[in-house]
Write a protein that binds this DNA or RNA. Structure first.
Lengths: 140, 140
DNA sequence: CTCTCTGCAAAGCATTTGCACATTG
DNA sequence: CAATGTGCAAATGCTTTGCAGAGAG
C-alpha cells in the first residue's frame, strides 16, 4: 500500500486528510504490527505534540475505511497493521511475535459454514498460537 | 462435562477444590458463553459474598487446567465457556451473540501451516464474524 | 465562517493485585 | 497447622471521551 493509495482512501472518505492521519499511516507503512503506544512513539519523531487520543481516533477511522486491521488477543494491547491482502496470524506464545500467513482454502471453509448457519456479510480470521522457531531453539 | 469430570479435573491439579471454584464450573455447566460479570451474578445466587476477583482468579486457573476456554474480541469483555470438544465461533456483528461450530479439516490446515512456519505446541481458533439469521431478518 | 480535528486531561471499563483473614487438605 | 484461597478495595493498563481551542475548506 503506497502513500498515494493511502491518501486516496482517506480523501474518498468523509474524513479529512490531516498530517496526523498521514503520519499514522506512514508509521504502519512497513507492514509491522504495532500497538497504539508504539505508533505514538513513531509518529512523535516527526510530530512531537500528537496525543494518544488522536492515535486511537485515527486508527478507528482507518479501520472503518478499511485501511487498517486490528489484532487483539486476551490480556494485552491491540496491535494494528496496514490492511494489505487478506491474511491470518501466527502468534508466538513465548515472545508474542506476530507473523502473517496466507491460508489457502480457508475462505471456502468459512463460507460453507456461514452459509450453513445462515450468517451473511462475513469476515473471518484464524489465529494460530504456538511456540515460534526462535523461541523453541532458545528453550533448549 | 459432568460434575464428576469437573471435580476430578481440579482434584488432579495442584489446586484445591473450593466451593467457589465448583460454583464457577456449575455456572458454566449449561454450555453458555458468559462474561465474568455474568458468572459473578450466577454464582452469587448461591453464594452472595463471592468477589469478582475470585471469579477472575478461578477462571484463570480453570483455563490453565484446560476446563475453561476464553473468547475475547476487540473492545468488550471476554466471554468464558466450559471447554468441551474443540470448536470455533460465529460472532454476530449486530447482536453479539456467539455460536459454536465444529470446522472439519481446519486442524489439518492449521497443522500444515504451523509445520511450514516451524511453530510447535500449537492451538488455533477461527472466528467468523457476520450477521446472524435473526438479525438479518430483523433488518428488513 | 463553519465544520471537523486535535491536545489535554479526566473518565471508563475490564482485569489484576496486595493484604489480612478464612479455609482446605 | 502449613499452604492455599478469598474478600475487599485499591491499582493497573488500555481505550474512550468532553471540552475548548486550532485548522481546514
Amino acid at each position: 500500500m503506497d502513500a498515494k493509495t493511502v491518501d486516496a482512501g482517506l480523501l474518498q472518505s468523509r474524513y479529512r486528510l490531516t498530517k496526523q492521519r498521514a503520519a499514522v499511516l506512514r508509521a504502519l507503512g512497513d507492514g509491522a504490527h504495532l500497538s497504539a503506544e508504539t505508533i505514538l512513539v513513531r509518529v512523535r519523531t516527526e510530530m512531537p505534540a500528537v496525543s494518544l487520543g488522536t492515535i486511537y481516533r485515527t486508527l478507528d477511522i482507518l479501520r472503518e475505511i478499511g485501511l487498517v486491521q486490528i489484532f487483539s488477543y486476551t490480556g494485552s494491547a491491540a496491535r494494528y497493521e496496514a490492511a494489505l491482502e487478506k491474511h491470518h496470524h501466527l502468534l508466538c506464545s513465548v515472545c508474542n511475535s506476530l507473523v502473517n500467513v496466507r491460508v489457502d482454502g480457508l475462505a471456502e471453509l468459512a463460507q460453507d459454514i456461514a452459509r450453513r448457519e445462515r450468517y451473511s456479510n462475513i469476515d473471518f480470521s484464524l489465529t494460530i498460537v504456538g511456540r515460534c522457531n526462535d523461541c523453541t531453539k532458545r528453550m533448549n
